[in-house]
């Protein structure tokens, strides 16, 4: 087992290299990179009113930067070397803990990400607890009460949550609970007067800001996890070993909890790592709706703005999280299923 996990950890390395090389190469060939942005910016400056007048787009004179300047820029961003050479340079820096500098804000990438991590962790953790804390019991109840009113009604609600994208749920929640009834704040993490509040007030303020986004985050995941739980439990309830347990004289309820449940948690555990990484890296649309500065929003903006050092930095962090999450899943599965021993 230990050997297995050691191998899994070693496997992180090639996987990580694969992911980063792919994205790095893509950033090279997607139009609209940082150099082109600079040129465009400079062009804009030139064509501003009070500048050199109407542009004559046909001739080369509208090129605001000289060849040397462009070469200079390319050198600065490492675009002058072959792709793999500059990837090597980038990787070397990453390994020494340097994720580079944002081409948009000129801030160190690591610091930009570090600011967002606690926010993403906060929402991610709460969402995970909510998803597992609600879906497992709900799935159990639905399986045991299969085809009753309770089961049907909860299916409808859960499916509505699935059909509507999380950010739409967010907008709806804001319109209803923040704007119409004003029960919850309109967004952000904390109120403006946060610092002046007492400890209890601070907690209350944070909770009030958390409720709506968390609902929006988990609305979609609820369905998958609830039905995964319900369906695997139903399968297990009709399995031979549950029949054996009942034949021994165990009441149905105890047969569910002592026998069927643990077997049904196996697929849930398999999903765990996947959920970790999705939730931690957040959803930029929900973050945008609720005005939360998490990793999702940062990643989205940096892609749109071609802020490649930030894109790569987020990629590094999130792929490591994903890989570790997968190993965590494996550990979870091994804990609940004795047949899995990873030799």
């Amino acid at each position: 087992m230990a050997v297995y996990f050691f191998r899994r950890f070693l496997l992180i390395i090639p996987t990580f290299l694969g992911i980063t090389i792919m994205v790095f190469v893509i950033t090279r060939f997607v139009p609209g990179g940082p150099i082109e942005r600079m040129i465009a910016q400079a062009q804009q400056m030139q064509s501003m009113p009070g500048g050199t007048g109407p542009m004559s787009a046909q001739d080369g004179r509208n090129q605001p930067l000289s060849e040397e300047q462009i070469e200079e820029l390319k050198k600065y961003y490492g675009f002058d070397k072959p792709v793999m050479a500059s990837y090597g340079l980038w990787l070397g820096k990453v390994l020494s803990g340097d994720l580079g500098v944002s081409t948009r804000y000129y801030d160190p990438v690591w610091e930009m990400i570090r600011e967002r991590i606690p926010i993403s962790l906060y929402f991610g953790f709460i969402s995970m607890v909510m998803v597992y804390g609600v879906c497992i019991p709900l799935g159990i109840a639905k399986a045991v009460k299969h085809k009753t009113h309770f089961d049907n009604l909860s299916s409808i609600i859960v499916f509505i949550g699935y059909a509507i994208p999380g950010w739409v749920v967010g907008v709806l929640l804001l319109v209803l609970f923040a704007s119409h009834w004003e029960v919850f704040p309109l967004g952000g993490m904390i109120s403006d007067n946060f610092d002046s509040l007492g400890l209890f007030g601070k907690i209350k303020d944070l909770v009030r800001h958390t409720v709506l986004p968390v609902i929006a985050y988990v609305a979609g995941s609820f369905t998958v996890m609830t039905f995964l739980m319900k369906n695997t439990l139903m399968d297990n309830l009709s399995s031979d070993y549950v029949r054996t347990a009942m034949a021994k004289g165990l009441p149905f309820r105890k047969a569910v909890f002592r026998h069927a449940l643990r077997n049904s948690l196996i697929p849930i555990a398999t999903n765990f790592g996947h959920n970790i990484s999705i939730i931690l890296t957040g959803s930029f649309l929900i973050e945008k709706v609720f005005n939360i500065n998490g990793m999702g929003l940062l990643g989205y903006e940096s892609i749109v703005e071609r802020d490649y050092p930030v894109v790569m930095g987020i990629l590094v962090i999130s792929s490591i999280l994903l890989l570790i999450g997968n190993i965590l899943s494996d550990i979870c599965v091994a804990v609940v299923d004795p047949r899995v021993r990873f030799e």
Binding site: S239, D240, Y241, R243, T244, A245, A247, K248, H259, R262, N263, V336, D337, P338, R339
Partner: peptide, 15 residues
């Protein structure tokens, strides 16, 4: 008491 045809599946795999 009852015993079944399939000994492979009649026992709980995780206990």
């Amino acid at each position: 008491a009852m015993i079944f045809q399939e000994p492979m599946t009649a026992l709980n795999p995780v206990h």
